[in-house]
Amino acid sequence: MRLINRRPDRSLWLILAVLPFLAVLIAYAAGSAIRLAENPADKLLPGLTAFADAIDRMALEPDKRTGDILLWVDTGTSLTRLVAGVTIAAAGGLLVGMLAGLLPLARAALSPFVTVVSMVPPLAVLPILFIVVGLGEASKITLIVIGVMPGLIRDLMLKIDDLPRQQLIKAQTLGANSWTIAIRVVLPQILPRLMDSIRLNLGPAWLFLISAEAIASESGLGYRIFLVRRYLAMDVILPYVAWITLLCFLMDWGLRAAQSRAFPWFDRARTGQ
């Protein structure tokens, strides 16, 4: 049988899916054991007990200096920034994307501008943001918005272009005006695609958040891992990275679930074509 025709059954699929995770874990455990055997105080590849201690210290016990439980405080501030940034970017992206995607006049005015703006590396703008809006929350949220919104706008414009031209004609023959076409024909079809787009942009959003927190902040997940880096505290950094990954994964999964709940027609239409 040709390789392209060989499909794993359910149990083989599970084994194959778990395999790379297992391989990384074993490699880490082996490396850690070798280094710890040579030097029990090694900080680079701490063992499982070190992780347990660090997680206990960060996630369960209040910090001696501030009295806060650090992991939760960090998570709270980071998520607030991220959600605020992504929400603003999505709302703005939807508005501008719909305008530029539907109205040729708006497209003429916006499309070249958005294309150029999307080429500006967001991190290069970060110093300007720190100078203009200060070191507070606003600069971090703005960085996420600047980093994510142009991509969302361009993506939505392309997706509106992809809607069959026949649909817009059809809506006009049913008596729609530009506004009702926007809210009854285009918006409901664009929202699930916007959610796809947000899912793809979660990675960049976290990137901008952690960069901003690393450079100037007093709390947040990114701030913490860059702070403890000074003490080579791999026992804290690695669980934090795993935690950020888990949060990101859950957001992605949540958006996916919300999408198929809110737009049951979308999957059918997508697989039907």
Partner: peptide
């Protein structure tokens, strides 16, 4: 010709809705 995000009934009602309500459709 038909709108994938509307049910069969919704697709046919759309004409009346669009003409009956210029603001909300």
């Amino acid at each position: 010709s038909v709108f994938p995000h509307l049910t069969v009934l919704g697709n046919v009602m759309l004409g009346a809705e669009l003409r009956g309500s210029r603001l909300l459709g």
